[in-house]
Computed example of a mutant assay.
Amino acid sequence: MGMKDQNTSPGDAEELLRLLSRAERLEALPRTGWQVCGVERPESIAAHVHGVMVVALWLADHHPEPKPDVERVMRIALVHDLSEAMLTDLPRPVKQLIGKDAVDRAEDRAADRILAAVPAWRQAFDEYRQGQTLEARIVKVADRIQMLAKALEYRQQRRGDVERFFDDHDTFDDRGIPLARAVFDALRTRYEERRWFDAHFD
């Protein structure tokens, strides 16, 4: 057994376990926007977060000067939907009905509760919401790229009507990330040509 870190208290350990118990709820919560489109058994919020982290890390690693802070990119990507552990994934029609201000307040309250013991993570959540820094903009476009890629996958699997995701021009906002523009163009091409990758790594 390793030596006990004298700076770690039982209370710290409890905070980690509490955070983990809350974060892991994302595994059981579906991305409801897909359900609205008729996709049965869609990806979980946790699976979406994993996909966003993959895209965000790739974009960060390939970004030209100035180089982003990759650790911050990963931190933002990890927490960007963590409030949904309490709120669930509210589909766009619900958000439009409730109003952006009310949704933002609810997300803030949820983030306050979930991330009370980890202020650096809470700050990362705010950074994503504000979407101004290079790191936050990378995660913003990674979120959209993952969504569009998943839409193409579901279309290939004939699992729902996902065409509307390609009709919203705001979805293709590259937020000043040059590589994102190239990826969005590639997604658009595959959408128009009705192509996606098969499941056999070919």
Rank of each mutant, 00 (worst) to 15 (best):
R72T: 13
Y154A: 09
L152D: 00
W121V: 00
Q35E: 09
S83V: 00
R113S: 11
K67F: 04
P93W: 03
V49S: 05
E107T: 08
F166R: 05
W58D: 12
W121C: 06
A120I: 10
A110K: 12
R144V: 02
L90R: 13
M1N: 02
G38R: 09
V139E: 00
P10S: 05
E135R: 10
D161Q: 07
R25H: 05
L179G: 01
L57R: 13
R25C: 04
R109Y: 14
R129L: 02
E24D: 07
A116L: 03
D170M: 07
R92V: 11
D185P: 03
A85E: 01
W58Y: 09
M147D: 01
L19A: 03
L29M: 05
L29E: 06
V70C: 02
R195H: 09
L90A: 09
Q35C: 07
A77V: 02
E15V: 04
A46C: 06
G11H: 14
H63M: 04
E84Q: 15
R175N: 11
E107S: 04
F165R: 13
L152H: 02
G131L: 11
R72F: 08
R159L: 06
Q132I: 11
E65V: 03
V52I: 15
H80V: 04
V79R: 04
V141L: 05
I145W: 11
A110D: 09
I98L: 15
G131P: 13
D161H: 15
G33S: 10
Q35F: 00
H48C: 03
R105M: 10
D167S: 13
A116V: 04
V70W: 12
E127H: 13
E24Y: 08
